[in-house]
Design a protein around this nucleic acid. Structure first.
Length: 278
DNA sequence: ATGGGTACCTGTCTGC
DNA sequence: TGCAGACAGGTACCCA
């Protein structure tokens, strides 16, 4: 799935297609994904306008205005593990896991999610989106200036466990999933097993830089395309080709040539080089 | 408060 | 060829 770069690439791809367009219809084909899908989506959205698409962590926020009651709303969308968004023509037949369509005249935004870990929620903007229970708990944006070595050092001091699961904790920093946690730790030369609170200020600087570099490079490359992820134009990203350790168990480390090791942490696979990462 | 395990769901791959 | 089991990019929840 979609980690921060894939979500951002989707957002950037969708903007020129549908931002500012009037919604001509919408429908859901399943009662629920992770949560129940909004009821009467077509009724609520038809005639309204998609004002903007924002991103917070791995959530996409579709700002809707010109609703029938003259209010505004925001659709909160999460791609989960296997979700993807595409622009299709109105006559494109839906496939098995195509759960939601939002139509804009000659274009349809289609949400596909085989594993159904994704989410689409209606937020009526009576309260600010930042107050939504799912958004409220999110940590800092890793590409914001506020996230740096000093910030990281301060926050890691409170965490006793190994760094890798901590780096993936969206309550602390958003957007870093299994691939980019592994890649960022490799780039900064830090072992995924190292206790978070024992990482020095200097190495926190390196880690924060590595996170920013890894995520930015992935956005620039068009996201990863492991398995079933496709971005909005249906094309495949190419960051996967540049992974240094992720899914490279047994292959030579790009730094030292020793085999990349795979271990299990907090129920997830971790790939790293025991030589280069201490 | 923090951390670990589990659950959610389907598709794909591996090994018997 | 068939089938069971493991595993997959996320995250909320329960419990120690």
């Amino acid at each position: 799935m979609p980690e921060l770069p894939e979500v951002e690439v989707s957002r950037i791809g969708l903007l020129p297609e549908i931002k500012g367009r009037t919604i001509t219809g919408a429908l859901t084909r399943a009662p629920k994904l992770r949560y129940p899908l909004p009821a009467n989506l077509g009724q609520r959205l038809t005639g309204a306008r998609l004002a903007d698409i924002r991103r917070r962590g791995k959530y996409l926020l579709f700002d809707i205005d010109q609703l029938a009651d003259d209010r505004t709303a925001t659709l909160i969308l999460h791609l989960g593990m296997s979700g993807s968004l595409r622009i299709v023509t109105p006559n494109t037949p839906p496939q098995t896991h195509d759960h939601v369509d939002i139509a804009f005249g000659d274009k349809v935004l289609r949400f596909r999610d085989p594993r159904r870990f994704g989410a689409l929620l209606w937020h009526d903007n009576q309260s600010p989106i930042e107050a939504h229970s799912l958004i409220q708990v999110l940590g800092v944006e890793p590409l914001d200036a506020a996230f740096d070595g000093e910030w990281l050092h301060t926050h890691l001091r409170k965490r006793s466990g190994p760094i890798k699961p901590v780096l993936m904790d969206s309550h602390m920093v958003v957007g870093i999933g299994n691939i980019y946690a592994a890649e960022s730790l490799f780039l900064s030369g830090i072992s995924p097993l190292r206790s978070a609170q024992k990482i020095s200020a200097t190495r926190c600087d390196r880690l924060a830089d590595a996170v920013k570099k890894t995520l930015s490079a992935a956005v620039a490359a068009g996201g990863s395309s492991v398995r079933d992820y496709v971005h909005s134009d249906g094309g495949a990203g190419c960051f996967q080709l540049q992974c240094a350790v992720y899914e490279r168990e047994g292959e030579p480390c790009v730094g030292c040539g020793n085999p990349v090791r795979k271990i299990r942490q907090a129920g997830r696979s971790t790939f790293y080089c025991p030589q280069c990462q201490k």
